[in-house]
């Protein structure tokens, strides 16, 4: 049974191969060698092929024409839409161009400031304020409502706000007690220094080379001012030691005083 089936399959394959060979022989035969019937058949095949291609071309032409029409319509709608926006805002394309340039100038300045370091920025505070006012003045122009510019203005305003730096005082020359009431407590409490007298150990620890006893500083001494911030563990340790020693000294003083009185 299996043998019969296998034989049948082999015969079918051979048959298929033979018919292919015959077909290809007709196709590859030079035109001059074709019989009348073969030539007629070939002409018929080619004509069908050409007709199919012709139809395909016609369909493509029709699609292209529809697309061209669609493109024209879309372009028209786009122009109308842009005109409608300008009309709503009461501006012209030239106004928008001028606005874009003004915004570009401000953006250029912002980028320039962003490349500066903190000290340089601290010196330019007034110019940065002027730039912020310049940007805010642009908000009064209705062209600023075009989303592209509206979002840019908000982003630039954020960038400008980030440019402000406080002037840092890096050193302080001690004045006299009579005139300035300068001691570490008072110096740390000055608004333009730390604005917090409790930060006096910070100045002390930043100047241990010239301050041995934090209760004693001299007029004319130039103190280095570390940046403002919470006290470090070293500073807190030094402060505790200071208060402990002060307490002990006072206790000793009292004991000595009481002893002397007793004598």
């Amino acid at each position: 049974m299996y043998k019969k089936v296998s034989l049948f399959i082999i015969m079918v394959i051979i048959g298929a191969l033979m018919s292919g060979k015959v077909y290809s022989q007709t196709q590859s035969k030079p035109d001059e060698e074709l019989t009348k019937e073969e030539a007629a058949k070939l002409i018929q095949d080619w004509q069908a092929k050409v007709n199919a291609l012709d139809d395909q071309l016609k369909n493509l032409d029709s699609d292209i024409n529809s697309l061209k029409q669609e493109l024209d319509d879309t372009k028209k709608q786009l122009t109308d839409c842009n005109d409608a926006i300008y009309k709503m805002l009461g501006i012209t394309a030239a106004d928008v161009e001028a606005f874009k340039q003004q915004l570009g100038i401000i953006e250029g300045k912002v980028r320039e400031y962003q490349r500066m370091n903190d000290d340089m920025l601290a010196d330019k505070t007034d110019e940065i304020k002027a730039l912020e006012n310049e940007l805010n003045a642009l908000r009064a122009n209705k062209a600023s409502l075009i989303p592209e510019y509206y979002n840019k203005i908000i982003s630039l305003a954020r960038d400008i706000k980030g440019l402000y730096r406080e002037k840092k005082i890096k050193s302080y020359t001690v004045g006299t007690w009579a005139k300035d009431k300068d001691c570490l407590w008072n110096i740390a409490g000055k608004i333009d220094i730390y604005g917090d007298p409790f930060l006096w150990p910070r100045i002390w620890q930043g100047n241990t080379d010239i301050i041995r006893n934090p209760d004693i500083i001299f007029p004319g001494q130039v103190l280095q001012l570390p940046p403002k911030g919470p006290k470090t563990s070293e500073e807190m340790k030094a402060e505790r030691k200071y208060w402990r020693e002060k307490k002990e000294a006072e206790a000793n003083k009292e004991t000595t005083g009481a002893g002397k009185q007793g004598e």
């Binding site: 493109l71 879309t74 926006i85 409502l145 075009i146």
Partner: peptide, 29 residues
């Protein structure tokens, strides 16, 4: 046809953006 299709798609996207912009402007105004 392929070129036209992509150009139409690009213009349609522009138109969509313009319509969104218009709504945005209307709201802010």
């Amino acid at each position: 046809k392929k070129n036209l299709e992509s150009e139409v798609a690009a213009r349609k996207a522009e138109l969509k953006k313009c319509q969104d912009d218009k709504s945005f402007v209307e709201d802010k105004l």
